[in-house]
């Protein structure tokens, strides 16, 4: 399960970043060298980058690189630190779930209004689906982390050595 998820994330990050890079570079070359271009290049670039970034955010949740302020919890005794960590991860999970739900409601609304992207001629609900789907990914990542936090093997990041 974890392996499959990682593979999916890897694929989406690579497609998103390298796809956006290709589209953006091609747009500049087309405009400058061939004096032509695509109207949809900007929306494609933005959509692919946001996809890559939000999937990257999910990976960041798995790897624990989202910035936290640990000044207070670090000073707690080890067993209490465990509870604080578990609480923090649970809150992050609750938030991801709520955002997945809120974004899903918005996608549903867009689907209902039939709004179409003016530049790309595709329904905007498809583009916006990135939001609930990546929030679902975030949620899975936090679900995976909670047992670790509970067991206490979730420690503050290793200090950088001078």
């Amino acid at each position: 399960m974890d392996k499959l998820l990682t593979k999916i994330e890897d694929a989406l990050m690579l497609i998103g970043m390298l796809g956006a890079l290709t589209v953006g570079t091609a747009q500049v070359v087309m405009r400058y060298v061939f004096n032509t271009g695509f109207v949809w290049s900007e929306i494609a670039l933005v959509t692919l980058t946001i996809l890559a970034a939000l999937v990257g955010g999910s990976r960041a949740a798995a790897e624990g690189i989202h910035i936290r302020i640990t000044v207070l919890t670090e000073r707690l005794p080890a067993p209490v630190q465990r509870y604080a960590n578990t609480l923090a991860m649970t809150i992050a999970l609750a938030y991801s779930l709520f955002m997945a739900y809120a974004a899903f409601l918005y996608v549903q609304f867009l689907h209902m209004t039939g709004m179409v992207s003016v530049e790309a001629h595709i329904p905007t609900w498809i583009i916006f689906s990135i939001a609930p789907l990546t929030m679902a990914l975030f949620s899975i990542r936090y679900i995976q982390r909670i047992p670790h936090a509970w067991r206490g093997d979730e420690v503050a990041k290793v200090e950088f050595i001078d």
């Binding site: 970043m17 956006a20 890079l21 953006g24 900007e42 670039l45 933005v46 980058t49 946001i50 890559a52 970034a53 955002m99 739900y101 809120a102 974004a103 899903f104 409601l105 918005y106 996608v107 549903q108 609304f109 583009i127 916006f128 990135i130 939001a131 609930p132 929030m135």
Partner: peptide, 26 residues
């Protein structure tokens, strides 16, 4: 309204100028 919060999640990132950040990182 709750869907507005869902709208903002994506719309806050939906700006071309913001795309400079990831590609300078890369």
């Amino acid at each position: 309204p709750v869907p507005i919060i869902g709208q903002k999640l994506y719309a806050n990132l939906d700006h071309f100028t913001l795309m400079a950040v990831p590609f300078f990182f890369l």
